[in-house]
C-alpha cells in the first residue's frame, strides 16, 4: 500500500485530484486534521479536532473505474463491516452512502471523479468519527462516534490498518454485495422527501435496488432514484 500521511491538509480528496497523474493506483492519502473537508453537495465535513479517520483512495485502474456506480455504496458498506467487527451492531446504510448508528451519522463518503471526455480517475473520500466525543448541534443530522458508541478510546493506527486493507479488498473484488447491503438498508419502508423531476415529493421507500438506485413509491408509481438525497420524515 502506498500511503501518504499529512498532519494537516485542506482536503484529502483535493490533494488526489491535484496530483493523480503522478500517483499510483490505490494510493491512500490521510490526514489528522482537515481544514476544508466536505461531503456531498458541498456540505462542510467538520474534522478539525484530530480524532477521526480521514482518508481518500485514488483509483486509476479502468476495471475498477467501470464499477463507479457501486463504489460509493460499497465504501459505506465497508465501514459497516468494520464497525460490526468492533462490536457496533445497530448500524445501517442510509442511501446513498451515509453510515448510521443509533439513528446518528457516524461516517460519510464522498466519491469524486476527474474526467475529460472519459473518467480518468476516481477518488473515494471517507470521514469516520472515531474518538470525537462532542459534536456541534448546528448540523441537521445528529452525529456520533465509535468512542461514543463503545464507551472507549479507539487505537486509531490499528483501525487505519484494518480499514485500508478492507477497502482495498472490497474495491478489487467481483463479489456482489447487494444482498448484504439490502440487509442494512436504513430507509426501507420509511417515508422520505426526495426530488423527482425537480419537485420535492414525499414518497415511500421500497428499498435499494440491485443497481444501487433507490426504489420509491410515489402514489401508484414506482420510481428509481439515481441522484440526490432522501430526507427522512419523522
Amino acid at each position: 500500500m502506498n500511503i501518504i500521511h499529512f498532519e494537516t491538509i485542506d482536503f484529502t480528496n483535493t490533494y488526489l485530484k491535484n496530483n493523480y497523474k503522478q500517483l499510483d493506483n490505490l494510493t491512500i492519502v490521510s490526514s489528522d486534521v482537515q481544514s476544508n473537508g466536505r461531503g456531498r453537495n458541498n456540505r462542510k465535513w467538520d474534522s478539525s479536532k484530530g480524532n477521526n479517520l480521514l482518508f481518500s483512495i485514488l483509483i486509476k485502474d479502468e476495471n475498477i473505474i467501470r464499477k463507479y456506480k457501486s463504489l460509493s455504496i460499497i465504501s459505506a458498506y465497508t465501514i459497516i463491516q468494520i464497525l460490526k467487527q468492533y462490536g457496533i451492531n445497530d448500524v445501517y446504510l442510509k442511501w446513498p452512502n451515509d453510515v448510521i448508528v443509533n439513528n446518528k451519522k457516524i461516517c460519510g463518503v464522498l466519491l469524486e471523479a476527474v474526467s475529460k471526455n472519459a473518467i480518468e480517475c476516481l477518488i473515494i473520500g471517507v470521514g469516520l468519527n472515531v474518538n470525537e466525543d462532542k459534536f456541534d448541534k448546528e448540523y441537521l443530522i445528529e452525529a456520533t462516534s465509535m468512542k461514543n458508541e463503545l464507551n472507549k478510546t479507539i487505537d486509531l493506527n490499528e483501525l487505519k490498518d484494518i480499514v485500508y486493507k478492507k477497502f482495498i479488498e472490497n474495491i478489487n473484488t467481483d463479489y456482489d454485495f447487494y444482498d448484504d447491503i439490502k440487509e442494512c438498508d436504513y430507509l426501507k419502508n420509511k417515508r422520505v422527501s426526495i426530488q423527482i423531476n425537480n419537485k420535492l415529493k414525499n414518497v415511500e421507500v421500497i428499498g435499494i435496488d440491485h443497481d444501487y438506485s433507490l426504489k420509491v413509491k410515489d402514489k401508484d408509481k414506482t420510481i428509481n432514484i439515481e441522484t440526490g438525497e432522501a430526507s427522512m420524515h419523522i
Binding site: 460509493s72 464522498l110 466519491l111 471523479a113 476527474v114 471526455n117 440526490g228
Partner: peptide, 13 residues
Amino acid sequence: IEAMKLENEIQSS
C-alpha cells in the same frame, strides 16, 4: 455532474 452518488469534475481537454 452528479450520478449514482459520484460527483464528477469535468475538465476541459
